[in-house]
Each structure stands twice: as C-alpha cells, then as structure tokens.
C-alpha cells in the first residue's frame, strides 16, 4: 500500500518559488557581489529554477555555481555508497555574498560539508542558506536556513523528496521511509 503523501503541489509550488525569489530580491537588491551556489545534485534543479525566475524578474546576470560536496561528507567510510557529481565553479567566492541552495534541509550535515567545500574557493563575506523544505525537528547540527520554502515536521525515519516535473507538475512528497 502506497502511504506516501503529497505535501506540496501546484499551484502552491510555483507560489513558493515566486515568494523565495522576491525575498531574495528584497535582500540582495541588484545582486552586486553576490553569487548563488547550489549543492549538487539535488539543490541544482531548485537553483536553476530560481535563477531563471530571477532573470525573468529583471535581476541582472550574477555568478552561479554548482558545488559537489561528496569528498567533504562526514559519512564517508561509514557504509554508505557515495558517488560524486560534477562541480561547476567558475569563480572564487572571496568577499562575495553567497546564497547556498539546497532542496531539503534535514540533519544539516550537507550544509556543513558545503561550507567546508566553499572555503576552498575563498573567504566569502557571508553565506545565507535557502532551502525549499526545512525539516525543522531533524537537525543534528546547529544549522538554520535564512530563506525557507516550506517547513515541515517529519519523523526521523520519514523521507522527503522533491520531484521536479517538466510541465509544472512539480511536487514535494513525504514517504514513510526512504525509497
């Protein structure tokens, strides 16, 4: 029996993206000295979508990178198979304002790894975190997002998946355990 539950679908999904974009514009204005970095692989579809929408809303082009954190993860050699994704970082983040983007903020360990990886590209002026889903009661580390799409309360064993559709059929699904 399929006990998964859709917790966000259209048209609310698009509204959430739209709101996040406007929050970013309020905070970063003309995005000078600002860059957006997605955590590979799952932060990238969200960052792509946000970057595209920001461009449509008149934000001038600003640096956008994709950062893979596999080699910085703290669960390496602990039974989990980790395969690397591509890093596309054609800039340094020295003195830049960085918007770090991930789809689901869960334990905070990915963000910790991303911050370590980010330091290898320079010392940013500051880093803010944007997460589409904040699983607020599952944190292992003191990490909090600055921009949140939706906050949910999920049990430790539950699994949240963001499904990126092609024609506006994106949704966020909550599964009773990892699928």
């Amino acid at each position: 029996m399929d006990t998964s539950r859709i917790i966000l679908s259209q048209p609310q999904f698009n509204l959430v993206i739209e709101r996040l974009c406007h929050e970013l514009i309020e905070t970063y204005d003309d995005f000078r000295d600002t860059c957006m970095i997605s955590i590979q692989p799952r932060g990238t579809p969200l960052a792509d979508r946000i970057y595209r929408r920001l461009t449509e809303l008149g934000v001038p082009a600003f640096p956008y990178g994709k950062l893979d954190i596999t080699f910085y993860r703290d669960d390496f050699r602990r039974g989990k198979q980790l395969s690397a994704s591509t890093t596309e970082m054609n800039m340094l983040v020295e003195d830049m304002k960085v918007i770090l983007v991930d789809d689901v903020l869960y334990t905070g360990r990915s963000v910790q790894a991303a911050l370590t990886a980010l330091n290898h590209y320079g010392r940013p002026a500051h880093v803010e975190l944007l997460a589409l889903v904040d699983r607020r009661f599952n944190r292992h580390l003191p990490v909090q997002p600055d921009f949140i799409g939706i906050s949910i309360d999920a049990l430790e064993e539950e699994y949240v998946k963001v499904v990126w559709g092609t024609e506006g059929d994106d949704e966020i699904i909550l599964y009773p355990k990892k699928v």
Partner: peptide, 26 residues
C-alpha cells in the same frame, strides 16, 4: 567508476585549495 570519480578530482586539483578531507582518518 574510476574515470568518473577522477574527473571530479581533476576539478579539485585545479582549485586554489587542492585538498579534500576524505581520507583524513586514514
């Protein structure tokens, strides 16, 4: 798999800081 992983490491060794912490406990 080795090739695919090496591609990512090639990117790593062309960064300003060419080091990752993966084998820090080995």
């Amino acid at each position: 798999l080795i090739f695919q992983t090496a591609e990512e490491f090639k990117e790593v060794i062309n960064r300003p800081i060419k080091k990752v912490p993966s084998l820090r406990d080995m």
